[in-house]
Design a protein around this nucleic acid. Structure first.
Lengths: 198, 198
DNA sequence: AAAAAGTTTTAATCTATATTAAAATAATGC
DNA sequence: GCATTATTTTAATATAGATTAAAACTTTTT
């Protein structure tokens, strides 16, 4: 019991740290936000953060891993829930976007991977590539099953993922806006994919 | 003659500075890139940059203004050249993307506007909003003339612009890739807009 | 070819902020 | 209530990198 509760409390607190950091990083960039910025946001002083992360670089790294995990979860769920490739894409968009603008709080944009130290950079790039491949696989599936019109999956993936990645740049917690994004984006981003002949 | 040639040489050099800076900023962010990084890229030492810009903040500001100008030019040209709203959108996408991956060298992503000092921030935000409105106006025009299916222009604009803004994050000068982007993106991004009934 | 203007460099300063160390406070188990 | 562990703070250190100043080239002008 002790081990367990302590661990959850610790990791809960750490998650708060990561969310606060994501919020700052999304607005002012990695080096643009000081640890003090993040700490202040949580009502702490900067050195307190070192209780949760080894250093600033690791803080970013963990934010990115968290972002990747959330994206992966959305995709897995979508693949499980959707029948056709098109359905899967639509569900993925919905799930992922719901996470981004919802409860899970701000999710870090992976915009400064180059600033990570080699080991971390490679791990994040790996996750990132995996996510891209996963998305392209959904597109291929849709093309194969006839729900998606043939297209350059690589470029289509880049286009759609870019649009999603950019959301945290202009969305900053406005509730009404969140609803609007969830309601509109999946459709806007997938409308161009559907096979005409069906 | 003297004034003129000197001025062009100066502004040409300054443009090289801005392009080098944009390249660095796009990869490692504002505070993540040192003036030394930028200078080294041009075969200079850091203090030399102060001959072209007042300080680092102004360097970013000028990069952003340059980016805005290029986007504006693309849009103006598109509005001049296209008949229907849909045509204008397509041309704009093509022109803007051609600029981004072409001659004009890397164009800065406006991802750290919050780091600018108030005066500059306001100016850039103004340009940015103007650009967004311009895009939404093209969409409205298309909906009015029947070339574009009715949609939430605000969100559709956010979606498409986000996709474009993200390009410099993954495109880093590969020629073949550039051709592919120019060939595919305009179509990928506008396919979802076209009115079905036509 | 001397003077002036334009451009870049070397050397010196200055500050913000990441990080560490040690101490203090709060919480928990016994 | 005491001892241990967890969490945060205050105080001190260290350094990178922006900025400034003054000097050295370089190019242009006359």
């Amino acid at each position: 019991m002790p081990r367990n509760t302590e661990e959850t409390r610790f990791s809960q607190q750490r998650d708060r740290v990561l969310r606060a950091a994501a919020h700052c990083f999304n607005r002012k960039g990695y080096s643009g936000t000081s640890l003090k910025d993040v700490a202040t946001m949580l009502g702490l002083t900067d050195p307190a953060l070192y209780y949760y992360v080894r250093n600033k670089e690791e803080l970013v790294y963990l934010c990115y891993v968290r972002a990747a995990d959330i994206g992966r979860d959305a995709m897995q769920q979508a693949v499980a829930d959707g029948r056709t490739g098109l359905e899967q894409v639509r569900l993925y968009l919905r799930y992922h976007i719901e996470s981004m603008v919802g409860e899970q709080g701000p999710i870090a944009i992976m915009s400064e991977i180059p600033s990570l130290k080699q080991e971390h950079r490679e791990k994040v790039l790996k996750l990132s590539r995996k996510h891209s491949s996963g998305f392209e696989a959904m597109l291929d599936r849709g093309i194969a099953d006839g729900s998606i019109a043939p297209c350059n999956v690589r470029m289509t993936g880049n286009a759609i993922m870019g649009s999603i990645n950019w959301i945290p740049k202009w969305y900053h917690g406005d509730e009404a806006m969140a609803a609007s994004i969830v309601a509109e984006f999946p459709d806007i981003l997938s409308r161009g994919l559907v096979a005409r002949d069906a």
